[in-house]
Structures are given as structure tokens and as C-alpha cells.
Design a protein around this nucleic acid. Sequence first.
DNA 1: TAGTGGTCTAGACCACACA
DNA 2: GTGTGGTCTAGACCACTAC
Lengths: 245, 245
Amino acid sequence: MNGAMRRPLDGTPLYRVVERTLMERLAAGEIKPGQAIPPERELAAAFSVSIGTLRKAIDELVEQRILVRQQGKGTFVASHDRERLLFYFFHVVPHDGVKTYPQVEYIQFRRAVADAETASRLHLSAGAPVFAIRNRLSLGGRPVLIDEIRIDVHRFPGLTATQWKSRPSTIYNLYQEAFGVTVVRTEERLRAEAATSEHARLLGIEPGQPVLTIRRTAFDMRDDPVELRISTVDTTHHEYFAELL
Amino acid sequence: MNGAMRRPLDGTPLYRVVERTLMERLAAGEIKPGQAIPPERELAAAFSVSIGTLRKAIDELVEQRILVRQQGKGTFVASHDRERLLFYFFHVVPHDGVKTYPQVEYIQFRRAVADAETASRLHLSAGAPVFAIRNRLSLGGRPVLIDEIRIDVHRFPGLTATQWKSRPSTIYNLYQEAFGVTVVRTEERLRAEAATSEHARLLGIEPGQPVLTIRRTAFDMRDDPVELRISTVDTTHHEYFAELL
DNA sequence: TAGTGGTCTAGACCACACA
DNA sequence: GTGTGGTCTAGACCACTAC
């Protein structure tokens, strides 16, 4: 990794230029998730900046959870493992608040066309081809939520049901390992709705019972939307938890 | 200048010591919300640390939204104005996503005893005296949510219904200005439930209709819980929005 | 012992606000 | 112009990891 940077003539701070340059290289897949970036002293020399400036740039990427520092070992490109899923992206917990890993059950994988909501959220034209996947998640042996996932076919070329079902880790890990798509940020919109008969059947509840719906849009490093996921949650024994600063 | 002399033996970084010291002074009300703290160079000299270390301490407090920097003017203790309410603490928006200020309507103010949930969340003993307040919030002229607020009587001594109703700004601003209680962080737990007949009446909907409930616990600078608020939301035209990193 | 990130210094200079 | 926060330097030394 050398220090070729485009230094804008406007007042952009040097550390931001370094940050953007590093980020673009990571987004381009120059260093894979789990691998270490070059040491700080080396990067500082390559970019011809002081160690303080270089560290400030890396601070920003650590803040965005794109990089992870480990003292004495190095700085690594963040990887989507089970730990990260539970900690940052899965917000459904039992009423007593103890987080546990969900068991995921595959229900359906098909090609479809984007409806209005999907097209709007994923910045596609209406009727664009998408993959439509349905999963059921259980916590403590009890079915708790149904996921309806929509992703752009062109962003995940050649994805198959087999590949989906046989993924070794989390869904976001599959996106990252197989397609170089790293989810770094999500937006979630929640409503209370009456359960449809189909969702009621899958969740083992009565049709019309109140359920929580979570509409999540997931964004990659370049802040492009990559996934729309509508989760329908039975909140009889579980709830959605958010900590807000 | 030997900074190591001021350093605790347990290896706590100097900037954390400075941060905690500053924070305690702010929590004690030494500088009021809206007022400026001393300039960085002055603070650095007072603490006998370099400007870089002092800035790192302030960075942390800015991150926690306890301080706000304004280039060329100074660094100020954060104040709970309408802007801050809308931006950080009010997460109910129309389906189209455009944020607007809620109109607040007073319904009830009374003394009560803490139920099990309130006592648990506010770290009180069951049956401890609390103020119980009910408000109705409207957006665009339409009633959207009912707030049930519980606060410890001992934390807000002498609070009256008149004072509550005649507050000039937001509720959190009242806590801050009149009682020195600054809310810096909240935890929210969401469920879908069926509207009670009373909530249905207040929201102008049918009893049993699905509504979103938000159980919010608010924490002060010392991370003590100061308020439990249960909001019951009609999500027919509005939704809860959260952005998660 | 060598190599990594983490802390800290003691400045210089820039950008912005205000009188 | 004066005073504020914002950026940047060129190091030194500490803490942790792995061999």
C-alpha cells in the first residue's frame, strides 16, 4: 500500500483525506476482512503524514467499525462473525434482557421482482430482479420472528439457494466473504401491526395478534443500500432493545 | 513537566483522569448548561497536561454529548433545547420520514407509588413515592402517542403540576434547569401490544388495535436512571426510527 | 527481543467569531 | 486584532503480543 493520495484543494483536513483513501482501498477489497493493515508507522511514512494524523484517520474507521485495533498485534479489517451479529445487528431479546444467539431456519429462496418499497429502499427501478428469502428465527427453542429478505440480484451475482443454506456463518458474513459486500450501518423502522394468517401460522400465534415489524435497510462501506429486511416479531416473550446516546 | 506524577498507579490513562475530573465538576453543576468551560489552553495548564491530552479528554465528553464545541467561540455544556429533543430523543416519525416537532398536551399529574417495573428500572424500593404524569403527543394535528412518565419524588423535590404545565421548553429541559438533572443516554424496549380501551379512546382508535409500546429508561451523567417513560404509539401513519452503527 | 498499538509532549500554524 | 477551537508535526516512551 503506497501513499498516493488525491489531496483536494479545498479545506478538507489531511486526516480525512487519509481516512477516505484507506476506506476506498478497503471497500475495493485490497485487504480482506480478518487481515491486518500495515503498521501505523509504515502507513504514516507511506502517506507522508505524522503518526498523530495517521492515528486520527484510523480512529474514524475504528469508530465506524470498519477496522478493529488489537494492541500489540495490529489493526484488522472487521469481519462479520457471530459475535458481531449478536452485538451490533440483532436487537431482539427476551423480556429479561439476556442476549442469546438465534437459531435460524431456512424457509424459502426465490427470484422475484422488486415491489415499490424494495425498489425505493434499495435504489432500484420498480420490477428489477431481486432475491427474496424467508427465514424463521427461534430463541430458546421458541419461534420468535420471520425474516423477509430482499437483495439486488446484480449485487449478489450467481447466489443460489444451496449456497445460502450451506453458509458456514451469518448472512452478513456470506455477503462479505462471497460477494465482498460489508454491512457497516443499518436503519430500522418499527411498527405494530396485526399478524397475517401466514405469519401467525409460522410463529404459532393467532391471526390478528399484534406483532412488531422491523424494516431494516443495511448499508455498505460506500453507504449504498444493499439489503431490505422485514422482520415480523412475536413480542409476547421478547422485545426490541435499543441503546441511544 | 512530569505528567506521570499525576497519574494513578492502576494505569488509567491521563486523559481519562482529566475526563472524569471534568465530568464530575459538570455533574456537580459547577458550570451550568449553556455556559462555556474555560479555554483549552487554560484547562491544559490547570491540569498540567499537554493540549493534545486535554483535547482527547474533551473529545470523549463531546462524544457523550455532554459538551459541545463551537469553533472560534468556545466549548459549552450541552443544553436540552427543542433541537436536541427532536434530534436525539424523539424517534417517532411519519412513514415518509420527515421529522417534525410534536405538540404536547397535558393530561394528568399525580403522586403515586412505584409499581414493580418502575421500582426495578429506577432502582427504587417497591412502593416508593413517584410522580406519575400522562401526556398526549400529536404530530401534524393527529394524536399519535400517549406518554406515561414515572420519576422519583426525591430526585425532583417539590415538583408541582403547575410547574410541569408551565415549563417553557422540553421536559428534559425542565429536569435540567429546575433540578440539575441532565439526561445523557436512554435505553428503549419496544413491543407490539393491543390497545387498551383507555389508550384507544385517547388516541382515537379502536380498542384491541395493535399499538407500539416504547419503554424508555433515561440516565443522567452519573449513569443513574432518572425517568421511566412508557409511550403507546399508534403506528398507522407513524413509525419508530433508529439508525444503528 | 522485536514489533505492534497506546499515551503523551510541546509546540506551530490555520480557521472562525467577534468587537 | 484577540481569543477561541481545529489541525498537524516529530518525536519519546509505555503496554502488550509473539517468538
